[in-house]
């Protein structure tokens, strides 16, 4: 596939922005500047970036609890993302939701449940709405391998297929649910794709650390869903680089395997190598991009920390419409 320089550099910038933000969250958490928890998505960015760049105006998104920085790719400013994570007035819920609920409805983000999987039916409901509208918009619904064993996920997939709704389920299979490996809890090799046939859906498996492969696979499936063929499942193979939450020492798994993924399947490095080999970008340009994004993120942290905290009086104003 021949890509334009503009497309490749834009894709890379989104990938790098997501990576550096995920790293920034880890860093500021270590410094004690985050009130809640951080579920780092470092290493899994390509799955989310590569798929989301196929979206268009009018689509809806049910994002996942890992790689929360991804909402920046949908146009949510880092300032507001960090304000929400730090529990400030400039966050979307003014400190009511926090890291798992970064959202902006004007960007099509539906929101997310901290009880993972309970939000999958919400995405199906949005797809029903889109189907009634009759345009070619779709819902991008992200979920993890661990979540895939929950009842609402099964219900949502069966329902979406039965009503032939325009929704693309994207499994970020990082192989770990806190300390339980997916292959300990699940008997099948591909917990996303292998189940598709049972619902009457089509599916694909992709290397979730290859952003261009994710893009191509998503492009194919999203076009299939947009054309009114009903839902589909894309399973992206990944590995959770860090603990379930920051502070988790991962004593339950072999660090050698983690290191192998970090060295050989680093989605950002892979993209950089590809771009350098194909003359899309120079080392200097990459360096400049790192510096620009880092400055943007530092400014976002400063902005968030300067944003006032919500007051106790605000609590009662945010419940009912």
């Amino acid at each position: 596939m021949a890509y334009s320089k503009e497309f490749i550099t834009d894709l890379y910038r989104k990938l790098l922005g997501t990576r550096l933000s995920e790293e920034k969250l880890v860093a500021i958490y270590k410094e004690g500047r985050v009130p809640g928890h951080i579920h780092s998505g470092v290493g899994q960015e390509a799955t989310h970036v590569g798929s989301l760049v196929t979206s268009k105006e009018g689509d809806y998104f049910k994002l996942a609890h890992r790689v929360v920085s991804i909402s920046s790719v949908l146009g949510v400013p880092f300032n507001n993302i960090y304000a929400e994570i730090l529990g400030r007035q400039d966050g979307n819920s003014r400190g009511g939701g926090g890291v798992n609920h970064i959202a902006d409805f004007s960007k099509g983000i539906l929101g997310m449940s901290g009880t993972l999987g309970c939000d999958m039916p919400f995405a199906v409901g949005a797809a029903y709405r889109l189907k009634l509208e009759g345009k070619d918009n779709i819902v991008y619904c992200y979920y993890g391998d661990g979540t895939s064993n929950r009842g609402p996920v099964h219900e949502a997939m069966n329902w979406a297929a039965a009503w032939k709704l325009p929704i693309l389920f994207i499994m970020d299979n990082n192989q770990w649910a806190i300390s339980t490996c997916i292959y300990e809890s699940t008997a099948i090799e591909n917990p996303g794709a292998d189940r598709a046939a049972a619902y009457g859906m089509t599916s694909k498996i992709v290397d979730g650390t290859d952003v261009l492969a994710v893009y191509e696979a998503t492009k194919e499936l999203s076009e299939y869903v947009r054309a009114g063929n009903g839902p589909a499942i894309l399973e992206a193979k990944n590995y959770r680089w860090r603990g379930h939450f920051e502070g988790d020492q991962c004593k339950y798994r072999d660090p050698a395997i983690t290191e192998k993924w970090q060295k050989k399947r680093n989605c950002v490095k892979r993209m950089e190598n590809y771009m350098l080999e194909n003359d899309f970008i120079s080392e200097d340009e990459i360096k400049t991009m790192y510096e620009e994004i880092d400055a943007e993120l530092n400014a976002a942290v400063d902005f968030a920390e300067a944003s006032p905290k919500a007051t106790a009086e605000d609590l009662f104003n945010n419940i009912f419409a």
Binding site: M120, G125, A126, R129, E155, A156, W159
Partner: peptide, 17 residues
């Protein structure tokens, strides 16, 4: 379908949108 959790959740997603 006989999927009470989803009857609620699908309703909510439809309402949100």
């Amino acid at each position: 379908p006989i999927s009470e959790t989803s009857i609620i959740g699908v309703g909510a997603g439809a309402a949100l949108t």
